[in-house]
Design a protein around this nucleic acid. Structure first.
Lengths: 123, 123
DNA sequence: TATAGCAATATACTAAAGTATAGCGGTATC
DNA sequence: GATACCGCTATACTTTAGTATATTGCTATA
């Protein structure tokens, strides 16, 4: 099946960009990832502290999401050799730099809300 | 139930920021939103064009997601009075400014991949 | 000895998201 | 008259995500 490239296909963006965006989306995906990342932006926390700081999250979800975030390289888990064991979670460097993305979201979100309310007034 | 505020709770970020981030997340949420937005970044397109430019999407999903994007104010749908009718989809101004967020994602994603591969080398 | 905190895990379930497939009403083409 | 394109919608189904609830092994405190 021979296919002639259309202008649109030629304009297609590089694969590396697509992969990069997907990587970022993966990190935010799901109901609880952003609240967890947001909470960790304020600093290292223990499991129970996180659980208390994120309203309505269950320990199952917290544990599951933290594992995924660790796998994705944005959260670091540390087991301290105390009695009983203490476990802390903190953002990796990569995790902290997500702040730039979040900031872009905040800027966009606020502009967006504003332009939407203006439109409603105009109608 | 009286509760004493912890340092962490005092540090909590403003509600408007949280809402703004959620607004942005809503727009990207789901498997197909980003591919659709990305495709529309190259310009106005018709339903069938979009369908062809996004591999594996079904018309049901495309239609569903376009409706949501329209509701969220990032896509504008125009019905042209031709025979048969032509329907075009394009990004609103708000939709175009999502580019900034996507760019931040690209920057983060590429850095992240790099730092991860470096870690692997170091180990 | 009973109770509570810590850091989870196990099991069972519901809800939401996504897929597969068929079809509609219109027009244009073979 | 059959087929194909356009812009969808309908129905049924599977997969994934999230919830609810109970339990574990350990220690410290009442």
């Amino acid at each position: 099946m021979v296919q002639i490239l259309t202008l649109k296909e030629i304009k297609a963006c590089p694969k590396s960009y697509v992969m990069a965006v997907n990587e970022a989306l993966t990190v935010f995906q799901g109901k609880w990832k952003m609240p967890i990342i947001g909470s960790l932006m304020f600093g290292k926390q223990r499991f129970r502290e996180l659980e208390r700081s994120i309203p309505k999250i269950t320990s199952r979800m917290l544990s599951k999401e933290l594992k995924e975030l660790e796998l994705n390289g944005v959260v670091k888990r540390t087991v301290l050799d105390t009695i009983p064991v203490t476990v802390t979670y903190e953002l990796t460097e990569s995790g902290y730099t997500l702040k730039k993305v979040v900031e872009a979201m905040i800027v966009w979100g606020m502009q967006h809300r504003e332009s939407n309310s203006n439109k409603k007034k105009a109608v």
